[in-house]
């Protein structure tokens, strides 16, 4: 799991005027999720799923705003958010390719898939192509071992992968600018 220590020497990311938790997002969470739980804090995971979906990553400012909104401390939000793999603190490409590396996929050739992506796109796991199109991650079991080797491309599962066809598929994904967000670098 992520063990994140805050770098106190790093300057605080400059505030942008426009909030990350827009009134629409707040309204959605307040109407749909708050009534589901006895505490506001319990809406933290749903809230950050929305933030990830909207912006592709989580900024310090979003954490601050969430703390205020959920009525808990900034530390509590950071503590929770940094624990979960799907909540990323750095921007990624338009397509996040999560290749499974657990046992059934290793048995069925996950290494060939990763190697092919490395060759064709020139990225290692954890890296993003220069055109911000593709970010590669290796992840643990995706719960689709009968389709090993498999990968999750954004929200879609791709199973029984063959290196060549999978890479061709990735190359044909529609190109577009990377996620919106405030454009600050990694």
């Amino acid at each position: 799991m992520a063990w994140l220590v805050e770098d106190r020497l790093k300057p605080y990311q400059s505030k942008r005027v426009e909030p990350y938790l827009t009134p629409e997002i707040k309204k959605r969470v307040a109407e749909k999720y708050f009534p589901r739980y006895p505490t506001k804090q319990a809406a933290l995971l749903p809230l950050f799923h929305i933030i990830m979906h909207e912006y592709g990553y989580i900024t310090e400012q979003a954490i601050d705003e969430a703390a205020e909104f959920l009525e808990i401390t900034r530390a509590q939000v950071q503590d929770a958010v940094t624990f979960y793999e799907e909540f990323r603190l750095t921007p990624s490409g338009k397509y996040v390719v999560n290749v499974c590396r657990s046992i059934a996929c290793e048995l069925c050739g996950h290494a060939d898939i990763v190697e092919k992506i490395r060759q064709v796109f020139g990225i290692d796991p954890g890296e993003t192509t220069e055109d911000h199109q593709i970010t590669l991650f290796e992840v643990e079991c995706l719960g689709a071992c009968e389709q090993a080797p498999c990968a999750l491309v954004n929200e879609d599962l791709h199973g029984c992968l063959k290196p060549d066809t999978f890479v061709r598929h990735l190359q044909q994904l529609p190109a577009e600018a990377a996620h919106k967000g405030n454009g600050q670098g990694h």
Binding site: M1, P46, E85, V139
Partner: peptide, 13 residues
């Protein structure tokens, strides 16, 4: 009685 879906965020534990 209500029933809701609560999504995790990537943690085996």
């Amino acid at each position: 009685h209500n029933c809701y879906v609560h999504r995790g965020a990537g943690a085996y534990i």
